[in-house]
């Protein structure tokens, strides 16, 4: 694996760099900010940004995609992006920390975000408007909670489903009320 040619840096940008860059791009940094942080000019970054996904498409073992997800979750620790943050409110900053440290908070917002889409609301924008958490930070949290989520499901599938269903009911109520109810709310058996 160590000599996998598909893992060789592209224009000097490693998969770790690239994954962290994508996470930060989702957190509101511009392409120019990203290029500057990586120490390259825009044409180099844009080639890198085209060619890493091509590598992923070519890799039938899904090894690169898996590593991408891992590195994506570690973006906050990446030295080139350390301290580089888009402008967020104090509350947004608190919530951004909370979603990475408080799993129940993450679980609930993940359901809320999905339900938002089911009611025609841009879920990512809703999370920003309501909690000040960017999509990039949300995805970093998702990547970091992934392993624990699998453990939880394996240990107590029923309990997990029950909890998710309760969150879902809560947000369906919230979003459907804003729409004047569901189309078939009045139809009963």
């Amino acid at each position: 694996m160590s000599e996998n040619p598909l893992l060789a840096p592209i224009h000097g940008i490693s998969l770790e760099d690239y994954s962290a860059a994508c996470a930060k791009l989702g957190s509101g940094l511009s392409e120019q900010d990203i290029a500057t942080a990586l120490g390259v000019e825009l044409p180099v970054w844009q080639e890198v940004n085209l060619l890493w996904p091509e590598r992923m498409k070519q890799d039938e073992t899904f090894h690169i995609v898996t590593l991408f997800g891992q590195y994506f979750g570690q973006a906050d620790q990446h030295p080139k992006f350390n301290g580089l943050k888009a402008n967020v409110s104090a509350e947004g900053a608190d919530n951004t920390t909370k979603i990475k440290t408080d799993k129940a908070f993450y679980d609930e917002l993940e359901v809320a975000r999905q339900v938002a889409y089911d009611y025609g609301v841009d879920g990512a924008q809703w999370v920003v408007d309501t909690y000040g958490i960017s999509l990039g930070d949300f995805q970093i949290a998702a990547s970091n909670w992934n392993a624990e989520l699998h453990r939880e499901i394996a240990a107590d599938f029923e309990g997990y489903n029950k909890k998710q269903a309760a969150y879902r009911a809560k947000y369906e109520k919230l979003f459907s009320e804003a729409q004047g109810g569901n189309v078939a709310d009045d139809i009963e058996f």
């Binding site: 889409y117 089911d118 609301v121």
Partner: peptide, 13 residues
């Protein structure tokens, strides 16, 4: 988004 909001209602049903 509008399409998703409609599909969401079908899924409700």
């Amino acid at each position: 988004h509008m399409l998703m909001g409609l599909l969401g209602q079908l899924s409700q049903m």
